[in-house]
Amino acid sequence: MAYDKFEILTSTAVPLPIENVDTDQIIPARFLKATERKGFGDNLFRDWRYNSDDSPKQDFILNNPIYKGRILVGGKNFGSGSSREHAAWAIYDYGFRCVVSSFFADIFKGNSINVGLLPVQVTPAFLDKIFKAIEADPDTQLEVNLSEQKITLLATGESESFEINGYKKENLRNGYDDIDYLQSMKQEIVEFAAQSPY
């Protein structure tokens, strides 16, 4: 699935200061029945966002118009639970390009990068700063610079660097993915498979 190239993202952010946000909350299982990758953004955080009669829950952050932007900031251990890639699609399809947290579940992190959503892991202290800054001013701008691997609170200039491996970084910057890479080394794979005992 092709996605947009990622270089520098400057945006306000939506805060979700809850820990252990699992993928069942991000996209409940009953929305996994599609056979196409369409419309997942509408059901992002479905049960936190809507009542059972489909009316919006006023106190949920995505229903609060003062918070918007292309960056989602979550609490520790974001994306735990089920391996459903739909969770990353839902966040991406909703309009986010980047998720910031002090800790990500492994599979979610991998899935995100694969679909063009950048997971940025910061220290707990910096995460706290971001939450406080947004709380004080919902229009707080964040800058995520992929080539420099740096996230900055623009108002104060405070910044932190984040990790991403060189291979994935190049993929995101060029908008291409692992499947492209694997296709380019097909011969090597076939030779490898020939000597596999299974």
Binding site: R84, N111, V115, D178, I179, L182
Partner: peptide
């Protein structure tokens, strides 16, 4: 281990996935 749908596509098309060693 469990994988995401993009990786399902990788395995179908190349019998490989890209994984850092845990």
């Amino acid at each position: 281990f469990g994988i995401g749908t993009s990786e399902v596509e990788m395995v179908l098309s190349s019998q490989c996935i890209m994984q850092p060693k845990p």
